[in-house]
Design a protein around this nucleic acid. Sequence first.
DNA 1: TTACTGACTTGATATTTATCAATTTTCTTT
DNA 2: AAAGAAAATTGATAAATATCAAGTCAGTAA
Lengths: 209, 209
Amino acid sequence: MISCTGLFFNFDFFLSMFEIFRKYLEEKVAISDSDYAFIKSVSVIKRLRKHQLLLNADDRWSSHAFVCEGLLRKFSIDEKGSEHTVYFAFENWWVGDRESLMNNLPSKYYIEAIEDSVVLLIHDENFQEIFRKVPQIKDLVNTILQRSLNAAHERINATFKSTAEEKYKHFLKSSPNLANRVPLHMLASYLGITPETLSRIRKQIAKTK
Amino acid sequence: MISCTGLFFNFDFFLSMFEIFRKYLEEKVAISDSDYAFIKSVSVIKRLRKHQLLLNADDRWSSHAFVCEGLLRKFSIDEKGSEHTVYFAFENWWVGDRESLMNNLPSKYYIEAIEDSVVLLIHDENFQEIFRKVPQIKDLVNTILQRSLNAAHERINATFKSTAEEKYKHFLKSSPNLANRVPLHMLASYLGITPETLSRIRKQIAKTK
DNA sequence: TTACTGACTTGATATTTATCAATTTTCTTT
DNA sequence: AAAGAAAATTGATAAATATCAAGTCAGTAA
C-alpha cells in the first residue's frame, strides 16, 4: 500500500504528507474515520526531484495526483521541438491527464517537477471506489472541475485580447506567488511567447518603474 | 412551468423539444418515469431568433441551458470594442456561465443565437433538486465537465503552437460541420485573429488547391 | 575552485499579423 | 425589387513578435 520511489522514506513522512491531504479534504467534505482509513490505504506517496517526470509523453496516465509539496508543470513538445506549458500545479492542486485516463490513450503531455516535490497518488480504480464509499467527494470533484473550466476559459479569453506585455502583467497579478518560482523560459512557454520577448518585456517594465 | 418567450408556441412543440432532451439523457443515464416527470415540470423551453441574446453581459446567470436546436456562441467584448468568442454551442450541448452562477456575480459574457435556436432551461435550484433525486446525473455532469476541460486545455495548447493558418486548418479538421455555419468574423474572433487575416488565409488556401 | 551546462540577455533582422481605408458582396428589411 | 446595413475582401502600411546569433550570467558537478 505505502510506497515511495524517491530517495529515502519513512512512515512518519508518509503520515505527514497524508495529513496535508486530509486537511485539504476536511475543509471541503465530511468523511468518516473508516473512510479516511480506506483512502489512506490506497494512497501512494511519491517524491520527485527537480526536473524529474511524473508523466512521460506516450505513457498512459491512470491515477489522480494531489500535490502535497512543491511545484510541477504539464507541457507538450511540438514538431519543432518547442515546449508549451498547459498549466502549473503547486501545493493543494491536482495534476494529471484526464484525456489519457478517460480514453485509455497514450498521453500527449509531460508532467515535470519544477522544484523537489511530493505528490499523493490514487489509482483511478481506487478513486472510483472512494466515489462509491464517499459520494460527497463527487461534489468536490465537480466544483474543482467547474473552477478549472472557468479558469481555462478565462485564460483563453484573456490571451486573445492581450499583447505579450498585458499577458505577462496579468500573470503577475493573478499568480504573484508563482512568478518567482517559475523559470523565465517556462513562463514564456505558458504565456505563448518566446523567452527573448519575455526577457525584453521584463526589462521594459523594470525601466518604467 | 411551461413557458416561452418566442413568437409562437404550443404544447406539441414543448413536447417535441423535451423529447430531444430526454433522448440525450436516456443515452447516458437511467432515469425513472416519475423523475422524468419532475424534470419535465421544471424545464422551460425558450426560442431564440438569430442575433437574440440568451445572456447579456452584467446580467446574472442562474440556469442550466441545453441546446435543442440551433447554434449559439458565448463571447466577451474588450475595452477596444473587439469581440472574443469563447466557444460555440450547437445541438445537444450545454451553454451558460458557471462563473456567474457559482459566485452569483454579473456575467462578463454574452450568449447569442447565431441561428434561430431552441434551448431548454432549468433553473439552478431545480437542477440541484434533480441532483438529489437522480444522483447519477452527477456522473454525467462530471463527464461533461472533464471533456470540456480537456477540450479547453487542448485548445490552449493548439493555439500557442500554431500560426493563424494552422489554427484555421485545425478548426476545419476538428469542427468541419461548424465551419459552414459560423460567419467569418465570429470564427476569426474564436481563433484570436482579425477577420482580414482570416479572409486572406482562406483565399490563400483556395488558391493552393 | 574550475569547468561546464543551461538560462537569460541583448542586438540585428525577418516574418507575421494588425491596422486603416476603400470597395465589393451579401444579407435584411421594407 | 430596392435601399440600407452588415460582412467580407483587398491593398498599403505599421506594429508586434519571432528568429538567429552572440555574449553574459548563474548554478551545478567534479
